[in-house]
Amino acid sequence: MRQEPAARIALRQSWDDYVLLRLEAPDVAAEARPGQFLMVRVGETLDPLLRRPISLHAREGGSLEIFFQVAGRGTALLAEKEEGETLDILGPLGRGFDLEADFHGRRAVLVGGGRGIAPLFYLGRELRAKGADVKVLYGGRSLRDLPVRDKFAADGLDIACATDDGSFGRPGFVTGLLEAEIARRAPDALFVCGPDPMMRAAAGIAAAGRIPAQISLESLMGCGFGACWGCVKRIVRGDGGRWRKICEDGPVFPAGEILWEGAE
């Protein structure tokens, strides 16, 4: 992990309140893995004070792409950055997805909801490089919430979409798409990132089908590197559950380790 005070924005794309930035940061990129994240300063003054955690969307040589949705004051400022400007970033942070297993010839299903699609492009490419058969399921409220859908197909990744309002793809939640996919052909591994209710439902589906699932959690973070203890969630590791840091122990956890809020 390192600090890059001036990562140049080489590319900016936006779709309504979704934004993609490509950052030139060779030293950070060299250490990056799918599922890791950056802590990004959104301005140069003391307000907003804290960096924002943004997950890695892709690695392109010495550059890293981040993809995010405007969700508050910090991300709104970040969305105003233009090509040629620089960003102060810290990263790569977190453990990322566990890709130690042999994925050759294995079927991996990646489930993303809304901005939770961000890490799955990087992950899909990496799994494919490891010889996995990759299927991506992408859900959102409406067609406008699926801005990077064509990017997956253009990269040769098999993708299916679902929208809550039926404006594109299969009508309904992405978890419906997941159940249909499992019925068609059981995957060997699931990877999930999205809103909490969606991840919780996907974790339930994975448990019922005895499919190992890795879940990428989102949290407000003070620092991103383990110093503030602000980003905890209840994680069970043979101990009945403790508050563990999302930034340091995660953000990716095996589905069985997560004790969902209200489930205690």
């Binding site: 003391l46 307000d47 907003p48 004070l49 804290l50 910090g74 949290s219 407000l220 973070m221 003070g222 503030c228 203890w229 602000g230 980003c231 905890v232 969630k233 403790r242 508050w243």
Partner: peptide, 23 residues
Amino acid sequence: REGNPPPRLVETAGGLINAIGLQ
């Protein structure tokens, strides 16, 4: 020590409110 349940942090104007609870 367990500390407090989340959310434990809120960012405010030029500041940060925490309730970590000394985990």
